[in-house]
């Protein structure tokens, strides 16, 4: 179990989301970056669907009430302070053991969103098949809200080693080649109401930069910098129909909104374009003031990108290495080199 000591950012419990209830108005929710979520879970040997803590703005300060193994993914670094006051670093893209009484102090989340996984998974009740927080209707996660000071977070499946911090230390893993944030244009498909917009609006969307405004949360990002005009024959309203994360809808003022994980299930604004699934995690990392560019692709390219993302994730999970093992590949490699030098000397 861990306790939240300080929480100045926006931290919520998230997993892979809550599909299957959108016909009842229940949003998909789930991690803004499912790839980072799955990597965090892999670093503590959780199943990919285990619930983690999604962190935005700045990470919390946590106190270990029992020995735990945690992992960080994303642009966030931390340090671990022991009861005696000893400090050790807690880098991202690695797992770290905490002894009872240790404090994990996390810094600023620079890439927009980062994840903290706990071996065994965050234990909150399953609500409609998911542990993801949906704050607007106050369900899922911890009491349907963001984490706050004094919250105690239980661990779902206690590993048998619990109680032995040294055994947890031996399970620490690291990811040698972490994913880098992609700054290339975000790939979009023509949206269901593409023809409701002028050709100028479409060419501007796919060639000029838009800027993320301060109206940015888990429901969506409002974008500034370009006005996308509706074709006057259609106007700015449609009969409400289903929407999905990644849809770029444009209300009457011409300022687009990109929908994210917690978006409503239906909407009444025309959708000019839809971000492909493979690039959707990148929207979760977008910060106010950041410029975004979009480029058109077709469905075949979207599917190819989806396969590539899945293959890269699998390769990264396969590349995880123990942080301390005597059989660490780097250590063996170094040892062989030294042996080789010694042998050469003997031969001479």
């Amino acid at each position: 179990m861990i306790e939240i000591l300080v929480c100045n950012g926006y931290a919520t419990v998230q997993d892979m989301g809550r599909p299957g209830f959108r016909h009842l108005g229940v949003p998909l929710s789930g991690a803004l970056d499912p790839v980072f979520l799955q990597l965090a879970n892999a670093l503590v040997q959780n199943p990919p669907t285990a619930a983690t803590i999604e962190m935005r703005l700045v990470g919390p300060r946590l106190h270990a009430l029992t020995p735990v193994l945690i992992a960080l993914t994303g642009s966030v670094d931390g340090r671990i302070e022991s009861v005696d006051g000893d400090l050790r670093p807690a880098d991202a893209w690695a797992s770290h053991h905490l002894r009872t009484g240790d404090t994990l102090i996390l810094g600023e989340v620079q890439g927009g969103v980062a994840y903290l996984a706990i071996a065994g998974g965050v234990d909150v009740p399953l609500v409609l098949g998911s542990r993801s927080t949906y704050a607007r209707a106050r369900f899922g996660g911890l009491e349907g809200r963001q984490l706050a000071i004094g919250d105690k977070i239980k661990i779902a499946r206690c590993p048998e080693q619990l109680g032995e911090a040294d055994a947890l230390r031996d399970r620490e893993l690291r990811l040698p080649d972490p994913p880098r944030l992609d700054r290339s244009p975000i790939r979009v498909l023509a949206g269901p109401q593409r023809e409701h917009f002028t050709t100028l609006a479409w060419s501007r969307l796919t060639s000029e930069a838009l800027v993320v405004s301060h109206q940015a949360d888990r429901m969506g990002l409002r974008l500034n910098g370009l006005r996308l005009d509706h074709d006057p024959r259609y106007g700015a309203d449609i009969v409400s129909e289903a929407v999905t994360p990644g849809a770029i809808q444009v209300p009457g003022d011409g300022r687009p909104i990109v929908l994210l994980a917690d978006c409503q299930t239906v909407g009444g604004y025309p959708i000019i374009a839809t971000v492909i699934g493979a690039d959707l995690p990148r929207l979760g990392h977008a910060l106010p003031g950041q410029a975004l560019r979009f480029v058109e692709v077709d469905l075949r390219q979207a599917l190819a990108a989806r396969h590539q993302t899945a293959a890269e994730l699998a390769a990264r999970i396969a590349s995880l290495r123990p942080s301390h093992s005597a059989f660490d590949a780097d250590a063996l490699y170094a040892a062989n080199l030294i042996d080789g030098v010694i042998d050469a000397n003997h031969a001479a």
Binding site: R22, H23, V239, E241, R306
Partner: peptide, 17 residues
């Protein structure tokens, strides 16, 4: 994954894999 009827459309969310 989801079948969402609206006023005059039916949207199906699916896993392309």
């Amino acid at each position: 994954t989801d079948v969402v009827p609206t006023y005059c459309s039916l949207t199906v969310h699916y896993d392309p894999a």
